[in-house]
Simulated scan of single mutants.
Amino acid sequence: MAKEVFTVKMTPLEAQKMIEENMDADIIFTDAYNLGDGKFILITAFDRYYVRSSSNTGLLVICENTTEETLVKVVSTGSGAGLFQIDWGAGSNFTRRIRKILNEYIIKVIDIDKD
C-alpha cells in the first residue's frame, strides 16, 4: 500500500478536476461534501489493471480544505498478487501519477509515516 499527502495551491474542486481529467484510470466512485464557507471534502476512487502484478489496483484520492490549506491525500490498495501480495511497484506507480499531475501546484509533501 503506497500513500502520499501533500498541500497544493489550488482549491479542492480545482485539484479534483485536474486529477480526473488527466488520470489514465477508470473512475469508479466520486463523492462531494460541501461543508459551507468554501470548505469541501471530495473523494474519488480509481481502478487500473497492472500487467506487472496481474491485478487491479485501486486508488483513493481525497481533496479537502477543512483546515486553512488544501490537502490531497492519496492511497493505493489491492495491488498485490500471489501468496505474499507482492505488487512489483504498481501501488507506488499509481500514487506517483497524482503527484505528477499536480506537480506545479504542490507546496509541501507531508511525511505521514513520521512518528
Rank of each mutant, 00 (worst) to 15 (best):
N34I: 08
D26Q: 15
D26C: 12
N56W: 04
I62S: 05
L59G: 02
M23N: 04
L60Y: 04
S53T: 04
M23K: 11
D37C: 04
S54N: 15
D47L: 13
L42T: 06
S54T: 09
K39N: 08
L60I: 03
T44Y: 04
N56I: 03
T30A: 01
D47C: 07
C63I: 03
C63S: 01
L42N: 04
R52E: 11
I27L: 07
D31Q: 01
F29C: 04
F40C: 09
F29Y: 15
I27N: 02
N56E: 03
G38Q: 11
I28D: 06
A45Y: 13
L35S: 02
G38N: 08
V51T: 14
S55V: 00
F40Y: 13
Y49F: 15
A32P: 01
K39W: 01
N65I: 07
I28Q: 04
N22T: 05
D24K: 08
Y33D: 15
D26L: 10
T57I: 10
S54Y: 06
T66N: 06
D26V: 12
N22A: 06
D31L: 10
L60S: 10
G36P: 03
G58M: 02
T30K: 01
R48H: 10
Y50G: 00
N65R: 07
L35I: 08
L60E: 07
I43F: 13
F29W: 09
N65V: 04
R48K: 15
T67D: 10
I28G: 03
I28A: 12
Y50R: 10
V61F: 09
S54Q: 14
R52M: 12
N22I: 01
T44R: 02
T30R: 11
I41M: 13
N56A: 09
D37V: 13
S55M: 11
D26F: 00
G58P: 00
I41F: 13
L35D: 07
N56L: 05
Y33E: 15
D24Y: 14
F40K: 12
F46M: 03
N34F: 11
C63D: 07
Y49L: 01
I43E: 03
Y49R: 08
T57P: 00
M23I: 08
D37Y: 09
F29G: 05
N22S: 10
C63E: 06
V61T: 05
S55A: 05
T57F: 04
G36Q: 01
T67F: 12
F46E: 06
N65W: 08
D26I: 11
T30Q: 12
C63P: 02
S53N: 15
D24E: 12
A32H: 13
S55D: 07
T66M: 11
T30M: 11
D47S: 14
F29E: 00
N34K: 12
T57S: 09
K39A: 00
F40N: 11
D37F: 08
T66V: 13
L42C: 12
R48T: 10
E64H: 03
R52T: 14
F46R: 03
Y50P: 03
A45D: 10
E64K: 05
D47A: 13
A45I: 13
K39F: 06
I28E: 09
S54P: 06
A45Q: 09
D31H: 15
N56T: 07
S55L: 02
D37G: 10
I41T: 09
R52W: 12
F46S: 00
Y33F: 11
N22G: 09
I62M: 08
A32V: 15
L42Y: 12
A25R: 05
T57Y: 06
F29T: 04
